[in-house]
Design a protein around this nucleic acid. Sequence first.
DNA 1: CGATATACCTCACCTGTCAAGGTATTTCCG
DNA 2: CGGAAATACCTTGACAGGTGAGGTATATCG
Lengths: 111, 111
Amino acid sequence: MSLSADILRGHTDAIILAQLMDGDSYGYEINKNISQRAGGAYGFKEATLYTAFKRLEQNGFITSYWGDDGPGARRRYYAITQAGICQMAADRQEWAETKKVLDALIDQKED
Amino acid sequence: MSLSADILRGHTDAIILAQLMDGDSYGYEINKNISQRAGGAYGFKEATLYTAFKRLEQNGFITSYWGDDGPGARRRYYAITQAGICQMAADRQEWAETKKVLDALIDQKED
DNA sequence: CGATATACCTCACCTGTCAAGGTATTTCCG
DNA sequence: CGGAAATACCTTGACAGGTGAGGTATATCG
């Protein structure tokens, strides 16, 4: 099953920040890691990804720099900031809360 | 904690359908029930609610009818359709999948 | 009679997603 | 060497859902 976009809306930033907790990375790689971790069930569209980077940087949650060119084209690396780490923690709490609320609302009432 | 709107986006329809599984109801009441079930952490804005009703009805997931006027103003009741019940089941599965994927991506890595 | 609660509805605006299109570099194959 | 493919980045315009602000109508209470 693949998830519809609106379902993930609002979690985009948290997902990217979580990836950057493992160390600096660049767009293509971040997206590949996300797809892999999600079991292929989900991946950002490029436009979504770069829009998110811009937003995150403007908010001070990440910084970026041009890295050494490896194989292929030049890469822009992103690093999480202190503020980004705080935001990430808040996002995790919000996700925990979301699960509680939605479980109560979409309530399976099974058994 | 109150949840930001984007987080719930995409779940609006599922939440309403879930409420209607308990029987026909009308806008104000549905919203009150939702707020209550969510422990006050969340409630739809009226505009969101009525937009959703219209969308759901156009998609054939609910039907509506004017009910007996009780106390206060006239009420429009909504009922879930067979298609709505199917949709609800699909939404629940999607929610289960969402939890899995997001838990993997936002990964707490605690202990 | 006016305030308040109930109850419904619409419109313009904002934000995030994404299809489509574009640029540049490197590698691989023939 | 030439061209295709993979890597890698970025922008634009359109679209959909949420929502602030505003509007309507009825019943109740003081």
